[in-house]
Design a protein around this nucleic acid. Structure first.
Lengths: 161, 161
DNA sequence: TCCAAACTTAGAAGCATTCCAAATAAGAGA
DNA sequence: TCTCTTATTTGGAATGCTTCTAAGTTTGGA
């Protein structure tokens, strides 16, 4: 559960990014930023659209894509492509943290990341990049999928229980 | 430039992964694995298809997708979604390394990663994941795009040169 | 050599994402 | 507060990546 303080901080950061880029803070953009700040998982454009449509009946899917695109271009939001489903997922938490991506069930869960400040400095100086955000991705099998794979391999032993 | 030894190692690893999974090593799959092992950048399915079509005229795009999907499911290849263009990119180098993703020009370049073995152990033990590969993603602006943005901001100063 | 299962192929279908033109709303200035 | 300019929203069409399907082909074992 993301604490209200964290939500508030993320929402403010997203709105600031839009404002500083000279973009207008429309009702729709505010709603999308608020939703991104609140959601713990990594929603797709469709997820956001479906969640906000009831409260904002005029909302268009194109607007969701436009806003997400603007936020990604500003570096305020990350676009994730590890999920096996074809839709892009978005993450408003751009602080260095680990994403654990299961290659079987395609879930992507967060994991706190120990200090990487030094690493970031090394990369910044050697590459010349202006670094806006970071993300460590480990690909693997989550505990549930490891168990499921074991049961698939020996189905009789488990079934005779 | 990827050294021939590295190419060979990657190609062998991909073929082994397919073999160990009980999948057949067809001519097409061998060609796709070889191409993945050789390409330094992060090709899309289309890139692979176009590159191999001349030499394998019967090759189908569906086969490319099937093979890539199999390799991703086996954890032998990573699917990247940071590129802003809509197609998924694939990376056969699953050793821990940094991807520098420019949010403006969408290029994704590799960067060698200092030792993260300790970090990986911490994550493995705390999460229960079976970790198959890792990738650090820094989002930011590459040197060229920083320069381009500066010129856009002060076009007259540069033009009066 | 023969067979069953796995694989490839081409094209159709599905769906995420982008594009477009008309309608609307934000924000600056009077 | 009112007006105006311009960015933005909207819905639907278009694009293009990816998946699906059925038929033909190939693989590897017996």
């Amino acid at each position: 559960m993301r604490t209200p303080e964290v939500q508030q901080r993320i929402e403010s950061r997203l709105l600031s990014a839009l404002r500083q880029a000279g973009l207008r803070l429309t009702l729709q953009r505010r709603a999308i930023c608020r939703f991104l700040a609140q959601s713990e998982d990594h929603p797709t454009a469709q997820d956001i659209y479906r969640a906000l449509k009831p409260q904002y009946p005029s909302l268009s899917l194109a607007t969701v894509y436009n806003t997400l695109d603007a936020l990604v271009r500003l570096g305020a939001v990350h676009r994730l492509g590890e999920a096996g489903d074809d839709a892009a997922h978005y993450d408003a938490d751009i602080s260095p943290h680990i994403n654990l991506a299961c290659i079987r069930c395609h879930r992507v869960v967060d994991f706190p990341l120990p200090d990487v400040a030094r690493l970031e400095d090394v990369v910044r100086q050697a590459s010349g990049y202006r670094i806006l955000g970071a993300r460590m991705v480990y690909y693997g099998l989550c505990p549930e999928c490891q168990q499921a794979l074991n049961q698939e391999a020996q189905p009789t032993a488990a079934a005779s229980e």
